[in-house]
Computed example of a mutant assay.
Amino acid sequence: MKKVLLATALVLSIPTLSSVQAADPQSTVRVKSQAEQNKNIVVDFYEGVFQKHEVKAYSDRYIGNQYIQHNPHVPDGKAPFVNYFTQYFKENPDAKSTIKRVVADGDLVWLHVHSTQNSKDLGTAVVDIFRVENGKIVEHWDVQQQVPKPSANKNTMF
């Protein structure tokens, strides 16, 4: 019985997120504010690069000095990113990527994107994940899946 009471007392003494928020209501605002800031950074960067094709300007503004790339087709670093996508958009001037959903949690921002090379392309469903540090994008992952012509269901990928 003593062990149960001791365990209960320990559990009850651990502050929960809501009790921390009640003690410091500004802590929640700061967390949300940072996630919102990170979302804004990533969305502005993404639209600048993948809609406007202004690769260098938006990369200079938003990519950190140390940029880790997990896409196996693009080398690490800001300059390789700029070179790769500048060439890509020269070869695919009608390419665009439309953001369908954005989620942020702390330093991570996820984008659900429909990417096409031209108006005839069904495109690719992409989930891009960015890590933001001190207002700069410092790391990127992505997962891609081609949009099929026939689908086994009536749902879209977006």
Rank of each mutant, 00 (worst) to 15 (best):
Q117E: 09
N134E: 14
D128I: 11
R131Q: 13
Q144S: 14
R131P: 04
V147A: 04
V143W: 06
H140W: 03
L111I: 10
S151D: 02
V132H: 02
V138F: 03
E133V: 15
V127A: 11
V138E: 00
E139K: 13
S151N: 06
F130D: 02
E139R: 10
E139T: 08
H140G: 04
V143E: 06
H112W: 14
H140S: 01
G135Y: 15
S151M: 03
K149D: 03
P148V: 00
H140I: 07
V109C: 08
W110C: 06
W110E: 08
Q117Y: 08
T116Y: 06
K120G: 01
Q146S: 05
V113W: 12
T116Q: 15
V143A: 14
W110T: 11
K149I: 00
S115L: 09
Q146W: 00
L122Y: 13
V147I: 14
I129M: 13
K120F: 03
N134F: 12
S119T: 15
V143G: 07
R131V: 05
S119C: 07
I137T: 09
G123M: 05
N118M: 08
G135N: 12
N118S: 09
V126E: 01
K120T: 07
P148Y: 01
V132W: 06
Q145T: 02
E139V: 03
K149C: 00
W141A: 12
W141C: 06
V132S: 05
P150G: 14
P150K: 12
D142K: 12
Q144I: 06
S151H: 04
L111N: 02
G135P: 05
N134K: 15
